[in-house]
Design a protein around this nucleic acid. Sequence first.
RNA 1: GCCCGCGUAGCUCAGGGGAUAGAGCGACUGCCUCCUAAGCAGUAGGUCGCAGGUUCGAAUCCUGCCGCGGGCGCCA
Length: 586
Amino acid sequence: MNVLTSLSASFGEAFAAQNLDPAFGEVVVSGRPDLGQFQCNGALPAAKQAGRNPRDIAQAVVDYLQDRPEFGELSLAGPGFINIILDDHSLVEYASSMRSDRLGIDPVATPRRVLVDYGGPNVAKDMHVGHLRATIIGDSLTRIGKFVGHDVLGDAHFGDWGTQMGQVIVGIKERMPDLPYFNATITDSYPNDSPVTMTDLQEIYPDISERAKRDPDVAEAARLATLELQQGRPGYRALWEHLVTVSQASQRADFHDLGVDFDLWHGESTVHDLIEPLIDQLRTNGLALESDGALVVDVAEPGDKMEIPPLLLMKGDGAYLYTTTDVATLQMRIDELGREEVLYVVDARQALHFEQVFRVGRKAGLVPPEAILEHIKFGTMNGPDGKPFQTRKGGVVKLRDLINMVAQAGLERLAESKVVEYSEEEQTEIARLVGLAALKFGELSNHRQSDYLFDLERFTSLIGKTGPYLQYAVVRTQSILREAKEAGWQPDDLIEPSVEAERRLMLELLRTPDVIDRAWSTRAPNHIAEFAYELAQQFNRFYEECHILREADLARKTSWLSLVELTGRTLTLLLDLLGIEVPDRM
RNA sequence: GCCCGCGUAGCUCAGGGGAUAGAGCGACUGCCUCCUAAGCAGUAGGUCGCAGGUUCGAAUCCUGCCGCGGGCGCCA
């Protein structure tokens, strides 16, 4: 039972009774808690439209609803604001309805088939802080979509088919020229074990990639290797298999440590067999054209604000690019996976690329008009100097190192606490969860689209508005419930609040369904992060003011226990939607 | 040059066309014989980049300007 929906319906009815659009009845959480719990501002625009006095309209709305027992108080203020205070009995009913499964939130009536593309690590490259945003935001969006009730697939979309693969092959050839993969006369019976480890790749790739930028000969060799790989040279394919296996294993481990999972572990190479038919099709229907030796698709349209360059489908030498695989992947997602919405959680700097890919998809009829394609842009993570975050040595911080750093901060915090003694094993686990929470919450509390400063101190901070603050609130609820149980008290029916902090906590809880909806519809998990913090804050106030286990009145005590339980469950859900786990104690 | 994004407290950032713009950190003051102080209460700190416009009402929408970042065919 969503309180805002329900109140808006009542107010809509009151507006309709005056022959006004029921949409004016929209009720929102009050911006002035001193004046009311909720407010309806519809009288002002309604007055404008109807040519009437806003206060008259507001008064008529209030008169219409005044006698309903649901309302404790309806009052007019200013030019025509209606301030709403719920009757406590009604407030308790709303809150009680959340004690059921899924907090009483129904899944959407018409689920959509959605795919979220996020993470996108490159084979042969270590995951670094830059992957953090895409991964954490995408993971959270996927979780939110699933909870809302949609059929959502998360896809890692590995970068395993582009130029960097040719570069790595050249890099390995330089170091180990005698391997059978490079001997064109050998076409099968390659070794079962990879000639390189992830550690080797971490050295080979940056080196060769750097040199390819400066040395035309290296670049040319890499270009050729890429082409030969894509055209199926057996030795390269066999070596490539090893590279993919080795680096995926490492990246899966990184994702696992982050608590991130995917439904699909596809890559660019997954669609390789679709590319030729796709290119033929685009050629046949006249969309793909030769241009400077390359194959392009013109996507400019008359109303464009700026010149949209053609999408480069195939290089002059016949090699494929990420534009090629992206178009083919889009086709597969629509045709084979039956997706109705495809969301790309990718750096905002790639906006033009996706605009081109989407246009090709539409133009070529690969994507039906009603399908939704969205580039979920996110901003750049910068270091203190305003440039992409790097270590002092100049390298980009590896994801794994970052995870270790935040876990270390968690361990140090535990060491400071003198109250409880946990086993070393438990401390390690708590520190891991706390560190991840700090990292994820720090990431998700920013709006995804804004660039932001990566500040290690802030990310490893465990006090104030941080992930651990939220975990701590949940741990408090668990601790209280545990001790109550030992003493023989169980959560029971909610009764009307006796103090303001309790009432405020109930009201805060009621916002939950609306916030989740908004986070999904705007694809912005920071709404959930923000709300979870406010809810935890409200709970901590209640906790300070109401000493639950010492309360003498049994009905009140067991009602409070229910409220504690409900808060704990709500926070746990919200944190889960952010991809944050909570330890039993901390 | 054209296009996109950003500019809010000392710092880092929230902010859904609504009333008196918020939080955290940092600074300063209090609160652990009491459910875990990773907490709570309080003080100080703002011409929401600038100028116009739309609106009953603008940090929020529109236009221009300034500043910062980014993108603009054979990388991803």
